[in-house]
Write a protein that binds this DNA or RNA. Structure first.
Lengths: 142, 142
DNA sequence: GGCCGAATTGAGACTCATTCTCAAAAGAAT
DNA sequence: ATTCTTTTGAGAATGAGTCTCAATTCGGCC
């Protein structure tokens, strides 16, 4: 599902079109294991004629459809991680950006924890955002 | 500790100086219960001669010292919440920005959950970021 | 294969938050 | 009061992201 084809399939559902630019973006995104920024994708594809706006538009689309997770770690806002669309969180290395998913759908302890408070104050929880950051084994040894 | 004086005390520790602008910013920040942006503080204080750069510098300083939490909810990145410097998380209303803190220091289930995975892959956790968003009772009824 | 309407595109202008620069002003220490 | 350092504000600069719009490209249909 996270292959280039899978990403394209997501883009073309609901009558979307498969275009040359989208194919290139899907490839670029699928070929990354670590977190990446829109800028990086743009720089990689600009020589092949893909415009900045198109990169942002396409990444936003993938984010809306749940294939891309937005991270807020470190200084620069907004890096992305390709991921399965089910609910989960990420352990992200602040140095190399590599990502380990954790947490299983339907068993999110974060929500369970806060639900008591929410009920008490009459708050309706719509969602949450969790990021755990640190250093991966490889970055620790370098 | 979250009074104007407490905020100023934090700013002046380590040889920092207490200035007119910082006093105004401390007051403005202390007087807010909901989340706010740097822009809002700037607009409030610009007529009194506080510069934009100073607002950003001071809010960053308070963030570094742990008195201000950065939120990433909704569209616009970077709103702030004044908070006790101990570890905890926030339940934030996406409509009015009001904030309920939750979680107690030393008992963060988020870390506990992910620690097993971290150990297994040799990852050293440095910190995490949690945000739960939704709608508060008041916003639901309006 | 060629035609058509709709979706998509890229270039570049634009916005807006944030940072930088730097000379002037204001604290603190003496 | 003097001096040294920190802080300041104005405005320029940066940089991510968005918008506009005419030109291009898709994909279905004949």
């Amino acid at each position: 599902m996270l292959s280039t084809e899978g990403i394209l399939a997501t883009l073309t559902e609901n009558g979307g079109r498969e275009t040359a630019s989208r194919r290139l973006i899907a490839q670029a995104v699928a070929g990354r294991s670590a977190a990446f920024t829109a800028q990086e994708i743009y720089e990689e594809l600009a020589p092949r004629g893909v415009g900045r706006a198109t990169v942002f538009r396409t990444l936003n689309l993938l984010h809306e459809r749940g294939l891309l997770n937005r991270l807020h770690i470190g200084e620069g806002c907004h890096s992305y991680t390709l991921c399965e669309p089910q609910h989960h969180h990420h352990l992200v290395c602040v140095r190399c950006g590599c990502v380990y998913p954790f947490g299983t759908p339907g068993d999110c302890t974060v929500v369970a924890d806060v639900q008591r408070l929410a009920v008490r104050v009459g708050f309706v929880v719509e969602g949450h955002h969790v990021e755990v950051f640190g250093r991966c084994a490889e970055c620790l040894s370098t």
